[in-house]
Nucleic acid binder design. Structure first.
Lengths: 337, 337
DNA sequence: AGACTTTTTGTTACCGATATCATAAAATAG
DNA sequence: CTATTTTATGATATCGGTAACAAAAAGTCT
């Protein structure tokens, strides 16, 4: 490996001078600068960031922790974050927590061990609180993305789940649906919880019928929506929901698969709505009626906030940015009489 | 920041002893080990990887360079790679080259600067050759994924594009299609080139009609398939292709959008096939007829190969793994008479 | 030209860990 | 109980940079 000393020797200067050239410090004679730069080129010298970090205390490395990049929502967050990071000369280490606290902790530990400058973080759920405490104890800037945690004050960028839910419910209502089912993940997650609250209050405010059997909660790893469907079918036809609200895209896809498997058609037999596009591409012919958020912006802006915090541009109190999701009416819902 | 010296002081031992405990070296009295471990816990000490890397020369950091994580094919490669990395105690820095050589170079430079232990790499195209030379000059292990470069011997994991193409073409043929169009990206990419070769040889072997106007080449950044469609429509109806082969999923999606925009329906008016699922989720109701590869495995196995190379388990000559894509007949193709 | 600034370059110590060699303590042997 | 081997711990130099100060060179001024 070529070091700063090799370059120094070749350019006939001290190591310090080379260091100055690398960091284009002031007060270097043009002539020596050129000589050093020549030596750098000739030797293919690249500075060793580990060594730099040892003195400078920064690494220009950031950590992105999401639950699963494979979820198009997070894929686009990742892309947005990476774009901003690249623009600003940072790089991104990415991690999939799979909604698993242990995994999350282990990623955080190694991130800290690496001396990453900050973390862009989608917490698994309420249990993540201790992980956040841990991060804070180590004085590392964090920005929460998509989910927040009660009682923890942090920069964050999230969606307005109440409004989003209301938009979807309203759409179903206008399409004539009154019996509306609800499929959701564990409510240790803020987004899920808020969507559930939104759902319930809509039901109440509009005096819609409500049946405990229309509600299904799943952990996200093995969904088992098929069980739910089977249960629904035990009800007399007039007691079944005509539409189902899913708190996220993965659930909607899984639910639809379960329905298709027993030859129930969406939207002819039942309508489905959910949060977030299941598809990564803004396709003309997307199928699901959703409220759509702007994950790319979440990632991009979230990362800007993080960098501002790191570089001390944002000194004041925490900032929370809230985006309002947009209703996209597509083909998974149908007007009924 | 807590250092090894803080721990040493607290546990009343030398720094070296702490280091030994961290790396669970042999020959430490159980009693001192416990004392040190206690101190580590109490101080929340986490070793500084930058410092470790300075002596050990490894970082347990790997670089993943793909063209765009947002493409579900690469999303899943990323996930596969990250899973394996995590299992083995490595972490992944990820980068989107956007098929842009300059970006690619800049990512490689900073990866090397970081001292990453290896690179899992989807080269932008033929121009990436110089980037690979550069990586090799710095003695960094690389595994190529999805695309290879002629004349460069490296571990790689790729798909069998000839067979894949033949499968799709055969399917169209069996469905009665004879006039088949072709939409492709820049052929500086090995996959594209091979698919094009496969296409041409199929046409020749089966004496199918061929018309230069049925072929459209685009750079992948601004596709402009709509121009292509407009051109097709200037042909008399009987001279238009009844099916179009796209070399990748993004092109297929874009093409379909263009068709929809002028009220041409897939598959009723025209059939489409392509490589790789546009959707990240194995959905029951996926639309496109494709040959599907196993990107998750590409990532997972590619990363294993990389680690083997890094850790010296794979000393011998280069290894090339070739996967055969599988035909998935869905709803974007139609039998014609 | 000499005194005084200002600019440019070099020296040394240090960042936080570990390799290497040295030493102390414990275990075993004679 | 000393001599010898083995095991456990420590001192020091080093990895590749940079901060902080020191020194040398160049430029200004009288």
């Amino acid at each position: 490996m070529t070091t700063i000393y090799d370059v120094a020797k070749r350019a006939n200067v001290s190591a310090m001078t080379v260091s100055r050239v690398i960091n284009n410090a002031s007060s270097i004679k043009k002539e020596t600068r050129l000589r050093v730069e020549k030596a750098i080129k000739e030797l293919d010298y690249i500075p060793n960031r580990s060594a730099q970090s040892l003195t400078s205390k920064d690494t220009r490395l950031l950590s992105l922790i999401v639950t699963d990049v494979t979820n198009p929502f997070y894929t686009r967050i990742a892309r947005g974050a990476e774009d901003k990071a690249h623009e600003e000369g940072y790089q991104l280490v990415f991690s999939n927590s799979d909604e698993n606290i242990e995994k999350e902790s282990s990623y955080i530990r190694s991130a800290i061990s690496r001396g990453i400058d900050g973390i862009l973080f989608t917490p698994s759920g309420d249990d993540s609180r201790k992980n956040i405490k841990f991060i804070q104890k180590h004085n590392i800037p964090v920005v929460l993305i998509d989910r927040y945690l009660d009682g923890i004050e942090l920069d964050s960028i999230i969606g307005d789940n109440h409004t989003g839910t209301k938009k979807l419910m309203n759409h179903l209502y206008e399409y004539g649906h009154r019996k509306i089912g609800f499929v959701t993940g564990p409510n240790s997650v803020s987004t899920t919880r808020e969507r559930m609250e939104g759902f319930k209050s809509f039901i109440e405010e509009n005096h819609l019928p409500y049946n405990q059997k229309w509600v299904f909660t799943t952990n996200l790893t093995n969904m088992k929506t098929s069980h739910f469907i089977k249960d629904l079918l035990t009800l007399p036809k007039e007691d079944r929901p005509t539409a189902i609200f899913c708190t996220n895209n993965f659930l909607a896809v899984d639910l639809m698969n379960s329905l298709n498997n027993i030859d129930l058609k969406v939207p002819d037999d039942i309508s489905i709505v959910c949060f977030d596009d299941p598809q990564p591409i803004p396709m003309h012919n997307s199928f699901f009626t959703v409220v759509s958020q702007q994950p790319y912006e979440y990632g991009y802006i979230g990362l800007s906030m993080l960098i501002n915090r790191i570089e001390g541009k944002q000194k004041e109190e925490q900032k929370r940015i809230v985006y309002t999701p947009e209703l996209m009416i597509r083909h998974s819902t149908k007007i009924i009489n």
